[in-house]
Design a protein around this nucleic acid. Sequence first.
DNA 1: TCCCGGCATGTTGTGTACAACCTCGGCCAA
DNA 2: TTGGCCGAGGTTGTACACAACATGCCGGGA
Lengths: 228, 228
Amino acid sequence: MPDDARRPAAEPGRLSAEERFRKLYAELRGRICLLDYPPGTKLGEEALAAEFGVSRTPVRRVLARLSDEGLVEARHGVGTIVTDVDARELSDVYALRMELAQLAGTLSPRPVTAAIRAEARDFVDRSETLVARPDPRDFATLNMDFFDFGLRLCGNAALAETSERLYYQTARIWLQTIPRLDLRREATSFAQEIRQVAAALDADDPSAAALVRRAHISMSYRRLTTEA
Amino acid sequence: MPDDARRPAAEPGRLSAEERFRKLYAELRGRICLLDYPPGTKLGEEALAAEFGVSRTPVRRVLARLSDEGLVEARHGVGTIVTDVDARELSDVYALRMELAQLAGTLSPRPVTAAIRAEARDFVDRSETLVARPDPRDFATLNMDFFDFGLRLCGNAALAETSERLYYQTARIWLQTIPRLDLRREATSFAQEIRQVAAALDADDPSAAALVRRAHISMSYRRLTTEA
DNA sequence: TCCCGGCATGTTGTGTACAACCTCGGCCAA
DNA sequence: TTGGCCGAGGTTGTACACAACATGCCGGGA
C-alpha cells in the first residue's frame, strides 16, 4: 500500500477542524447575503449549535469572524444580530470596489487559459437562462458565482481577498432593493456585463474585462441609489 | 445628578468585553510587528492567558482574529505559530498598498484642519529626532504612528480598514531586513516623506500627500527587495 | 392613569475539563 | 548501527457550566 501511508486526516467522513470552520462560515455568510437571515435577525448561538450538531464553541468562532467582517454584531446579553448596511458604508465600499475591480486587470492578472474562456461561456449561458426567466434568488446566486470566477482571474492574492471581503460586506443590499427595481432590466444589464467580460477574455485582454466590471459596478450602484 | 444617570459601563476600572478584546489584540499585534515575537515563535494560549490574567477563551478569540489576518497560524496539537512573510505575499501586498495609498488622496479625503497640520508638524519633529539618533525600534514605532495618522486623513472607512489590515500584514519584514539596510539612509528618507506630507497638508492638498506616500512605499519596497 | 423599581428570562462572555492531535524521545528488533 | 514502533508530554479544538448583562413584564405607589 504505497499510497495511503501515514495519512490520519484522509478519511472522507471526518472533516478537520478547519474544514468544518470553512463549511459553517460559508453557510452562514451565504444565508446572510441571500437574506435567509435578513438584517435584524437574531442568530442564537445555541440554536445554530443545535442545528449543526456541535457545541457553541465552534459556532462562536464563526460568528466572531462574521463580526470582524461587519456582517453581524454581537451584543452581550442581547444576541448576535445581522447588521444592516447604511448608505454611508454602502457608498464607501462601492467606491473602493470600483477601484479594486479595475486594478484586478492591471495588477498581475492571470493568463487567460482555454478553460477560463470555456467557463466564461458557461456563465453567458447561465445569464441567458436567467434573462429568460428572471428570479431574484437565482440572480443573486449567479452574481456570487460570477464574482468568485472573477477572483480567480486575479493573480494578486491580497487584492483577491480584499475584493471578496468587500463584496460580501454589501452584497445583500442588492437583494433588499430588488423589489423596488426593474428585475428584467437588471438581468439584462448583468447578461451584458457577462457577455462583454467573456468577449474581453476571448480577446486575451483581462484589463478590458476589468474595466467592464468596473463600469457595471458603477452603473449598478447608480441604479441602486437613485431608484430606491 | 443629571450626568451619571443609568450608565452601568461607565466605571473606569472595569473594561467591557470589547474593550478588553481590543487591548489584547493591539498588544499582541504590536508584539508581532515589533518582532518581540519573531516569526516562528510559539504563542501558547495558556501562557498568554496567565500573563494577562484571563482564561484561554478570550485569548483564543484574539488569536483567531490574528489567524484570519494571517499574522499567526494555529496548528492543532502543535501550537499557534507567528507566520513568516514570503516574497510573493510581500510583493502582492505592497503592490496593492501603493494603489490604496494613492486612492486615499482621491477617494473622499477629509478636510485638512489646523489640528491635523499641527499633528503633522509634531511628526516632523519626531522624525528629526529619529534622524539625529537612529534606532530600529523607535523607527518602527514612529512608522506605525505616522501610518495611523495617515488613516485618519481618509474619509472612506472601507479604504482605511483595508489599508490598516494590509499594513500590519507585512509591517514586520522591515524590522527583519533593517540589519542588512543602511539605517541612517532609511531614517533620512522617512524624514523626507514626513516633511513632504506635512508640506502638502499645509498647502491643503491631500492628493499630493497621498502621492508622496505612494512614492515612498514604492521606494521602500525597492530598497527592501534589492538590497536584502 | 402614569411612572418606576425589581425580578424573571434569555442571551453572550468567561472559565474549565476533557478530547483530538502532534512531536519527540526511548526502546526494541533486524 | 539503524530503522521503526510506541508511549509520554504538551498543545489546540470542543463541550459544558456558570457569570455578566440586557430586556420586558409585572406590581406597587403617587
